[in-house]
Simulated scan of single mutants.
Amino acid sequence: MEENAKSPFQAAVQPGLIIGLVSLTITYVIYFINSGLLASGWFGLVMIVLFFALIIYFGKQYRSELGGFMSFGTAFNFSFITMIISGIIGLLGQIILFQVIDPSLPEVLAEKTLESTLEMMESFGASPDSMSTEQLDEIKETTLSNFTALGQIKNFGFGLIAYAIVSLILGAILKKRDKSLDY
């Protein structure tokens, strides 16, 4: 490792900010085009793929700065910190979207989520009619609670576990050891 190379934390700040702002920009653009798309599985899948691709891109840049080699621990730390920073930006942007810009949006997304849940049940052969009104209301209320500021913060906390698991995968992808140091 070079003497004046950045620590994983220092190196992760700028990529974390960029990824957070890119994902937030895409979220807001999709919101303005058709807010119902935010509840789409395709939207979530595209965002995850983009997230992975950008972290790998920035991770390879950081590895190059380190001389072309990076340990698993360094790669894990870089990935995890990048995801935390971008996640915080996304969290703040979504709280602003759901609480300030369009407080009615959670209701729309809860309806869309309920519709897609019922469609998925039908595709698996279950009858949505078999669910009571109370069960449907409970699903909707649970979904709505995820869009409150407290619900989003709680989900971010649970998301940290997912970030750690994804960082393990990204750390394995980004690591590269210097084989010339082997005896």
Rank of each mutant, 00 (worst) to 15 (best):
K175D: 07
T74F: 02
I33E: 07
V22R: 13
V46Y: 14
A110H: 01
L92D: 01
M120F: 11
I139H: 03
M70Q: 15
S7I: 06
N146Q: 11
G90W: 01
K175F: 11
L174G: 12
G157Y: 05
S145K: 09
Y28G: 01
F80K: 10
G36D: 04
G67E: 07
I84R: 12
L24F: 10
P128L: 00
L17A: 14
I89K: 06
K154I: 11
F80S: 11
A172M: 12
N4L: 10
D102F: 04
M120G: 09
G157R: 05
A149K: 05
A39T: 07
L181G: 06
V13Y: 07
P15S: 09
F58W: 15
G125C: 04
N155P: 00
G93M: 02
P15Y: 07
K6T: 06
L50S: 12
I95M: 10
T133F: 00
K175E: 12
L168R: 09
I30D: 01
P8R: 10
L109K: 08
I89V: 15
A75R: 13
A149I: 03
I161W: 06
Y57E: 04
E134M: 03
E119F: 01
T148P: 03
A110N: 02
K140R: 14
I173M: 13
S7Y: 09
A162T: 12
S104W: 02
S123L: 05
T133R: 04
L150Q: 09
G41E: 05
G87R: 06
F147P: 01
L144A: 04
T113D: 03
T25F: 14
